[in-house]
């Protein structure tokens, strides 16, 4: 006995619902907890201090990013001669030294040594600050494991103390709140803490351990063995091959290419050649096998 249209629709809905429930029961879903600044500071203090010094020095990824965070006409990706990234403007301004280091430390009022170090740093000329942060960043880079305790002696001014106190603040959990509470009581924008964490290597190390690196098809995957956003395979694919994999403008190039391909998909019925593929490949004879057999 054949089913009616309505019965078949209900059957399909039933099968899909049942499949969903079975997959959810058997496989569940991933939920690796988010990394806090406190966790980062506790588990990878050397990376945290190195990153904090880079934020103070203005040499971190965010500090040199360009639009929409930093006003730097020389930074940002281009599509050929078009500086698309700069066209958006600096709409989410971030001053990494002030927002990530000096600002949070300035709220700590019960530490005379810190107050003195802050006053000395803020009272120094830009060149002097740059000399201190640059020298300390170099020294950290040369120290075993980038360990601040093993840094060679040198003229770093108040920078080691500032970085050390920021580490203490982060370990206590205070910095998580500080970076989020810059605009009022209710907060929904995690840009600053996320940019800070992403400037270090701890987040990426965790991601690579989960096979989520950019060269590991990371954009379409998720933690655990879950299928993730498999539908992003084509977008992710371009990042794995030259010239995209080695270009400084990879994101702009891939986005432009995907825009063109998406437009081609949408306008396929109007594109000569592409729209003739179905007739030429004759896959339709498999789809309508029954029809062609009965109408032979």
């Amino acid at each position: 006995m054949s089913m009616t249209t309505r019965e078949r629709r209900s059957a399909v809905l039933g099968v899909i619902t049942l499949l969903t429930v079975v997959l959810a029961v058997v496989f569940g879903s991933p939920d690796k907890h988010a990394i806090s600044l406190a966790e980062w500071a506790r588990n990878a203090p050397n990376d945290f201090v190195t990153t904090a010094v880079a934020e103070l020095d203005g040499s971190s990824g965010t500090a040199t990013y360009g639009a929409p965070y930093v006003n730097d006409p020389t930074a940002g990706q281009k599509l050929g001669p078009l500086p698309l990234q700069r066209f958006g403007g600096v709409r989410e301004p971030v001053d990494t030294a002030q927002d990530f280091v000096i600002g949070p430390l300035s709220t700590v009022t019960s530490d005379p040594a810190l107050r003195s170090a802050l006053a000395r740093y803020q009272g120094a000329s830009d060149d002097q600050r740059k000399a201190w942060t640059g020298a300390y960043a170099d020294a950290l880079g040369k120290a075993p494991d980038n360990d601040p305790a093993k840094v060679a002696t040198g003229d770093y001014g108040p920078v080691p103390l500032l970085a050390g106190r920021l580490l203490d603040l982060a370990r206590s959990g205070g910095l998580d709140g500080q970076l989020l509470s810059s605009g009022g009581f209710y907060q929904t924008d995690y840009a600053k803490p996320l940019l800070f964490i992403a400037d270090g290597t701890y987040l990426e190390d965790q991601a690579r351990a989960e096979h989520l690196g950019g060269d590991q098809w990371g954009m379409m995957n998720e933690t655990g063995g879950y299928p993730g956003q498999a539908w992003l395979w084509l977008y992710t694919f371009w990042y794995q091959i030259p010239p995209f994999s080695s270009s400084d403008n990879a994101d702009a190039l891939v986005w432009a290419l995907m825009m063109v391909l998406s437009l081609a998909l949408v306008l396929l019925p109007f594109i000569p050649g592409l729209r003739s593929i179905p007739r030429a490949t004759r896959v339709y004879r498999l789809i309508w096998r029954e029809h062609y057999r009965t109408n032979r």
């Binding site: 639009a67 929409p68 698309l84 990234q85 958006g88 709409r91 989410e92 994101d251 986005w255 432009a256």
Partner: peptide
């Protein structure tokens, strides 16, 4: 990706 084409702030 979004910033590279100038739409990341929106």
């Amino acid at each position: 990706g979004l910033n590279s084409v100038g739409v990341g702030a929106w």
